[in-house]
Simulated scan of single mutants.
Amino acid sequence: MNVINSYITLNNLEIYAYHGVSPQETKVGNTYIINLKLKVDYSKAGETDSVEDTVSYADVFSIVKEVMSTPSKLLEHVVYRICEALFERFKQVEEIEIHLDKNNPPMGADIETAGVYLACSR
């Protein structure tokens, strides 16, 4: 079989964290929604059925959760830190797409979420 692209995804991951510019945001916190798409060649895992031959999405979640636990003022900074941590931990990851949204941001508008999107590669 000729595999063109393979990805591992985590969709609509909810994490409560304390990011924001205002002191209230870092004190009260908010729910954040994360969507990740990792380009990984997992063709060997497709043959072996072994988690050692791929990137475990449970391990990806652990890293994202850890990075999210350190407050930042800007979501832009958070997604950069997540990407750096994932690239550092998983040499198999070639590219990352990440969406990070904050629920009901305190900006005086009737809005469900506001967020950032980052696509990066090694």
Score class of each variant (00 low, 15 high):
residue 2 N to C: 07
residue 3 V to E: 02
residue 4 I to V: 14
residue 6 S to Q: 03
residue 7 Y to I: 04
residue 8 I to C: 03
residue 9 T to Q: 08
residue 9 T to P: 00
residue 10 L to N: 00
residue 11 N to R: 13
residue 12 N to A: 11
residue 12 N to C: 04
residue 13 L to R: 00
residue 14 E to V: 12
residue 14 E to C: 09
residue 15 I to R: 02
residue 16 Y to D: 06
residue 16 Y to W: 05
residue 17 A to E: 09
residue 17 A to Q: 02
residue 21 V to G: 07
residue 22 S to I: 11
residue 23 P to F: 04
residue 24 Q to P: 02
residue 25 E to I: 06
residue 26 T to R: 15
residue 26 T to F: 04
residue 28 V to Q: 12
residue 29 G to Q: 06
residue 29 G to V: 10
residue 30 N to L: 10
residue 32 Y to L: 08
residue 32 Y to T: 07
residue 33 I to W: 03
residue 33 I to V: 15
residue 35 N to R: 04
residue 35 N to V: 07
residue 38 L to T: 01
residue 38 L to C: 05
residue 39 K to M: 12
residue 39 K to N: 12
residue 40 V to P: 01
residue 40 V to Y: 00
residue 41 D to H: 00
residue 42 Y to N: 13
residue 42 Y to I: 13
residue 44 K to R: 12
residue 45 A to M: 02
residue 45 A to I: 02
residue 46 G to N: 05
residue 46 G to V: 05
residue 46 G to P: 05
residue 48 T to A: 06
residue 49 D to C: 08
residue 49 D to I: 08
residue 49 D to S: 09
residue 52 E to M: 06
residue 52 E to D: 15
residue 53 D to V: 05
residue 53 D to P: 07
residue 54 T to Y: 00
residue 55 V to W: 01
residue 57 Y to N: 07
residue 58 A to T: 12
residue 59 D to T: 09
residue 59 D to C: 07
residue 59 D to E: 15
residue 59 D to R: 06
residue 60 V to R: 02
residue 62 S to H: 09
residue 62 S to T: 12
residue 63 I to P: 02
residue 64 V to I: 13
residue 64 V to C: 08
residue 66 E to S: 14
residue 66 E to M: 10
residue 70 T to S: 12
residue 71 P to N: 05
residue 72 S to L: 07
residue 73 K to A: 13
residue 74 L to Y: 03
residue 74 L to D: 05
residue 74 L to H: 03
residue 76 E to I: 04
residue 82 I to Y: 00
residue 83 C to S: 15
residue 86 L to N: 01
residue 86 L to G: 01
residue 87 F to R: 01
residue 87 F to N: 04
residue 90 F to H: 03
residue 90 F to S: 06
residue 90 F to L: 06
residue 92 Q to F: 03
residue 92 Q to C: 08
residue 93 V to P: 01
residue 94 E to C: 03
residue 95 E to R: 13
residue 96 I to K: 02
residue 98 I to S: 04
residue 98 I to C: 10
residue 98 I to N: 04
residue 99 H to E: 15
residue 99 H to D: 15
residue 99 H to Y: 11
residue 100 L to T: 07
residue 100 L to N: 03
residue 101 D to A: 11
residue 101 D to I: 01
residue 102 K to N: 08
residue 102 K to H: 05
residue 103 N to S: 14
residue 103 N to H: 12
residue 103 N to E: 15
residue 104 N to L: 14
residue 104 N to W: 00
residue 104 N to R: 11
residue 105 P to I: 10
residue 105 P to F: 11
residue 107 M to V: 15
residue 107 M to P: 05
residue 107 M to I: 15
residue 107 M to F: 10
residue 108 G to V: 10
residue 108 G to Q: 09
residue 108 G to N: 10
residue 109 A to V: 14
residue 110 D to S: 13
residue 111 I to R: 04
residue 112 E to A: 14
residue 112 E to V: 14
residue 113 T to E: 09
residue 115 G to C: 11
residue 115 G to Q: 07
residue 116 V to E: 07
residue 116 V to R: 03
residue 117 Y to K: 12
residue 117 Y to N: 09
residue 117 Y to T: 15
residue 118 L to C: 10
residue 118 L to A: 09
residue 120 C to F: 00
residue 120 C to R: 13
residue 120 C to I: 14
residue 121 S to G: 11
residue 121 S to T: 09
residue 121 S to I: 02
residue 121 S to D: 09
